[in-house]
Amino acid sequence: MPDLGKYAVEVVSAYGASLLLLALLLGLSLRRGQRARAELAKAEAEAADHG
């Protein structure tokens, strides 16, 4: 850990908040993406059944 001096709280919270937001965005995107994939596979299978 580098010595952040008297502004340690500020610097760490800025990094923390930013990384958290990015992780959130990433997580939500991935979840939505996985769902869409699964959903599409199902829909294609159904469509194939119906011919």
Partner: peptide, 15 residues
Amino acid sequence: YRTGTEIRLRRIRAL
């Protein structure tokens, strides 16, 4: 990645 998701969602809708 997200565009891919949207394309798949649109395809589901069409199907």
